[in-house]
């Protein structure tokens, strides 16, 4: 069972109260981009064994979107943070480094 703390309402929400929103921090490539960039934006998703960043929505609660950093193998949650950011904040990165030294995800380390 996955339990995430919603950073907006502070509720420790169990998975069934949330809705998964797929991979976090996608950069949109729209009109004007190359076919290759658009293809990657549309289809290429990370599927790591280990550290992963995801979007979640507290759908049966406050209704807000937020980000979560977790481990896909152990379901360990490193932290949740605001949706209004392009990359994970330093405290989340530090929390991951403390537990999983040498982690990497896309171009993040």
């Amino acid at each position: 069972m996955l339990i995430l703390e919603c950073p907006y309402c502070g509720v420790k929400a169990e998975e069934t109260e949330l809705h998964a929103g797929g991979e976090a921090h996608l950069k949109r490539f729209g009109p004007g981009s190359t076919d290759g960039e658009f293809h990657d934006y549309l289809f290429m998703r990370e599927n790591p064994r280990g550290v992963h960043f995801e979007r979640w929505r507290h759908i049966n609660g406050c209704g807000k979107w937020f980000h979560a950093a977790r481990c896909t193998t152990t379901l360990e949650v490193f932290g949740t943070y605001s949706a209004q950011t392009f990359e994970p904040p330093q405290n989340i990165r530090d929390a991951i480094t403390a537990k999983r030294p040498g982690w990497s995800w896309r171009d993040l380390k």
């Binding site: 907006y8 309402c9 609660g61 406050c62 209704g63 807000k64």
Partner: peptide, 8 residues
């Protein structure tokens, strides 16, 4: 008054 979410 019930607190529904940060803006509701």
């Amino acid at each position: 008054l019930c607190w529904m979410s940060p803006d509701e």
